[in-house]
């Protein structure tokens, strides 16, 4: 039995072992399939959520700026806050809820039906065969989702700005894009890699640990993967923002 005081170290230790497993050559075909599957399943959720979020941010920005006669500047807030913070955060959250839950429940179901033990009995390492491909899939899907979130959020802001708030189309685009630099795009993609890694590690960890048995254990693993994944996504976003943008304050 592992002493209670060591439990907080379990996740970082698992992250190290999972990362080392990536270096031991996970099966290429499974990895490619999982990467495409994770991206295809997460993207629609990311795009929908961020489109509406971009629109909502624009409405709120407009409501705040209109009294000062600065309605046309609404795009700036969506550009700054959305692209730098909100859209990557939402992409990470969507990845955790869509993919994290699926990975955790899948691995936990394989564990309770002893399929993982069957792999071990064949002399195969489940970390290399099951965990590493899923972790790679999340790390690849992370930046793709964050990029899609940024584009979708900006389009949401543009659509609401142009059609609801009556801001000139080209003026809206200009203010939206004036706030976004290449650096923001690069930072967003780095955030995507980190968030993908966090979501993947938490999901694989929750799917791999010995939990309650049967269907309840599978459900609980999925639930923990989403809740803990989202909390760690928020913490990671805060940490990265403080690290990257904090030094310009």
């Amino acid at each position: 039995m592992i002493p209670q005081v060591l439990l907080p170290l379990m996740l970082p230790a698992f992250a190290l072992r999972a990362t080392a497993a990536i270096l031991r050559g996970p099966p290429l075909k499974d990895t490619v399939l999982l990467v495409s599957r994770v991206i295809l399943r997460s993207l629609p959720v990311v795009v929908i959520i961020c489109f509406f979020c971009g629109a909502m941010l624009t409405v709120q920005a407009a409501a705040s700026l209109a009294p000062f006669g600065a309605l046309r500047m609404s795009g700036l807030i969506v550009g700054f806050g959305g692209v730098r913070e909100v859209f990557p955060l939402l992409a990470g959250g969507a990845l955790a809820s869509r993919t994290g839950a699926e990975i955790a429940s899948q691995l936990q179901a394989m564990r309770v039906t002893r399929q993982v033990e069957a792999l071990e009995m064949m002399g195969l390492d489940p970390l290399v065969l099951l965990v590493a491909p899923r972790l790679i899939a999340c790390v690849v899907a992370g930046p793709v989702c964050v990029f899609a979130a940024m584009v979708s959020g900006l389009v949401g802001g543009q659509v609401i700005g142009q059609f609801q708030l009556g801001i000139d189309r080209s003026a809206m685009w200009a203010t939206l894009l004036s706030a976004v630099g290449v650096g923001d795009l690069v930072v967003g993609l780095i955030k995507g890699v980190v968030l993908g890694f966090v979501v993947g590690v938490v999901a694989c960890y929750e799917g791999s640990i010995v939990a309650e048995g049967g269907a309840r254990g599978v459900g609980a693993a999925a639930n923990r993967a989403v809740v803990r994944g989202m909390v760690l996504v928020c913490l990671s976003c805060l940490g990265l923002s403080a690290l990257i943008y904090g030094r310009f304050l």
Partner: peptide, 19 residues
């Protein structure tokens, strides 16, 4: 240990077939 397990086969109670 992994090499040793390749010299064994195991039939699990619930079969543990890959669904």
């Amino acid at each position: 240990l992994l090499r040793l397990r390749r010299r064994m086969g195991m039939l699990f109670q619930d079969n543990a077939l890959f669904g």
